[in-house]
């Protein structure tokens, strides 16, 4: 009955050489029962990507609320939001609910449009930001993801190698978590293109 593990899910983001990757599973469950195998947990806000795991209802609420906020930002600024700015937005938005939080663990990934620097960050449900230079994880498989990330990731990965690494990390972690899996989405983000891939995975 822990709100973070009713619906299940996994999300991970990684930094590579002039690129970032973010990936999630596709399962939506209610405890042990799987409701859907097509429930993506990554949302794009311009060139910045947000992964959300946790309580499904809050994933929907948070992702749509942030959509509204980012759209308003874009109208005011006449440009896309940068990952760093978006991270601050997510943080302050979550902290507004300090005493009745959204049960989500967000992950942000993107490349700064001006500097070209890869950027990733993760949060707890209250908005405490965790900046990272290598990888960030979230979801019911976070232990497994930490273990595999820590042993498979290395600095300076090229986009295709980063794709292989993040895919292996997510796949092998998901397979050891009954609440996550059933398909996966992977985004490889470079300065001038984004590649989205759908991974075929075990269906148990």
């Amino acid at each position: 009955m822990d709100p973070f593990s009713i619906n299940g899910g996994a999300c991970v983001a990684m930094v590579g050489k002039n690129c970032v990757a973010i990936a999630c599973d596709l399962r939506l469950g209610k405890q042990t029962l799987t409701i859907s195998n097509n429930y993506p947990k990554i949302f794009s806000y311009g060139d910045t990507y947000l992964g959300l795991t946790g309580l499904a209802t809050d994933i929907e609420t948070v992702s749509t609320d942030l959509r509204t906020k980012v759209n308003m930002y874009r109208l005011r600024e006449e440009r896309d939001i940068e990952p760093e700015t978006f991270t601050n937005l997510v943080s302050s938005y979550l902290y507004q609910r300090r005493f009745g939080p959204f049960y989500v663990s967000p992950v942000v990934a993107g490349i700064n449009n001006r500097t070209g620097e890869p950027f990733i960050a993760a949060f707890d449900c209250l908005g405490c930001t965790d900046y990272s230079k290598d990888f960030v994880v979230s979801g019911t498989s976070s232990n497994q993801l930490f273990g595999t990330c820590e042993s498979l990731w290395e600095p300076g990965l090229e986009p295709e190698d980063l794709f292989e690494t993040i895919s292996q990390v997510l796949l092998n972690s998901m397979d050891r978590d009954a609440l996550a899996g059933w398909g996966a989405h992977v985004y490889i983000i470079t300065k001038d293109q984004v590649i989205k891939r759908l991974l075929k995975t075990r269906q148990d």
Partner: peptide
């Protein structure tokens, strides 16, 4: 569309609620 009391929503090809989930899915 499938919605539960937590307001989790998903678009599905087929869906059920309650015990029917265990018998019919």
């Amino acid at each position: 569309y499938w919605l539960d009391f937590l307001a989790a929503k998903d678009k599905l090809p087929y869906a059920a609620h309650g015990y029917a989930q265990y018998y019919c899915l």
